[in-house]
């Protein structure tokens, strides 16, 4: 037998790893934000709006300030607990919902109720309940970020291709094999996108919870403290820090993991 069809090119088309996607528009986006900042800085007096260069210098200097590093460490510590717990919880609940119709309705109701309550409103609740510290913030992160994961996994599990399942059954798959060979790999993309959306929620609620007084250290605490003492340079430097860390974690770390796990989507040609 001969292969006469055109084979879609395997080599040459596979996209290189670009953490920032299209680099030039990205730089333009960052540039235009800094540009607006600078214009405002020219118009307003310096104590109200420092120059971009001053702000960025403070941003860099911060990394040799032990207080700042301490705060950064506390924030990342809370994230490192809250976010994985949320992902795990979301994944388990999502899978259960995908398997049981009743649980799916229940889960969707819980999520729609939780979604209508801004996550930081839980801060006072937990502070009263368990006191200041890391724990209330970790809880808030978990509440804020488990549901994108749960919904994403739930939809993917419900939507697993029926023919893919039947094919495995026809070939002799038992229930355990259906889970490991079909459900697992087929829902993996949903885990990854769910985790990415969850990360955005986790990060925003972490900073917000720190700002409204869940703790006395952390990036959110630093920015609200700088605001109280009218240290505009400190405020701007914190904003830059918060944005930069989120971008690095999301675009470099999470996207890197995504490309590793979903290698097949990025092999040969356009993203599938």
């Amino acid at each position: 037998m001969k292969i006469d069809e055109n084979v879609k090119s395997k080599e040459g088309l596979s996209a290189p790893f670009q953490p920032f996607g299209k680099t030039i528009p990205y730089i333009a986006a960052v540039g235009s934000l800094l540009f607006i900042w600078q214009i405002v800085a020219w118009i307003l007096p310096e104590f109200l709006m420092p120059d971009v260069s001053q702000g960025l210098k403070r941003f860099i200097d911060n990394f040799s300030d032990p207080d700042f590093l301490n705060g950064l460490q506390s924030s990342l510590y809370r994230l490192a607990w809250g976010y994985p717990i949320a992902c795990l919880l979301g994944a388990v609940l999502g899978l259960l919902g995908g398997v049981s119709k009743t649980f799916s309705v229940y889960l969707k109701s819980v999520v729609s109720i939780l979604q209508s309550i801004p996550p930081i409103t839980w801060v006072p609740f937990f502070v009263v309940l368990i006191g200041f510290g890391n724990l209330p913030i970790i809880f808030v992160i978990t509440i804020a970020s488990f549901f994108p994961m749960a919904l994403s996994v739930l939809n993917a599990t419900e939507g697993v291709n029926r023919t893919h399942l039947e094919l495995a059954r026809v070939m002799g798959a038992n229930t355990r094999q259906l889970i490991t060979k079909v459900y697992g790999p087929e829902t993996l993309p949903a885990f990854v996108t769910g985790a990415q959306v969850a990360f955005g929620n986790a990060w925003r609620s972490l900073i917000a919870a720190e700002m409204v007084g869940g703790a006395s250290a952390g990036l959110g605490w630093s920015i609200s403290y700088a605001g109280e003492i009218a240290d505009m340079e400190g405020v701007l430097a914190s904003i830059v820090t918060i944005g930069t860390i989120a971008i690095i974690l999301d675009h470099v770390v999470l996207n890197g993991i995504k490309r590793k796990l979903l290698k097949w989507r990025y092999t040969g040609g356009d993203e599938k």
């Binding site: 023919t163 893919h164 002799g172």
Partner: peptide, 24 residues
């Protein structure tokens, strides 16, 4: 059974797709 829509698993290479039944 061979299905109308090839039903290959998009996350598996061709050899891994063909190997499926042997794994199962």
């Amino acid at each position: 059974m061979i299905f109308q829509e090839h039903a290959l698993y998009p996350w598996r290479t061709i050899e891994d797709n063909v190997r499926l039944g042997l794994e199962l």
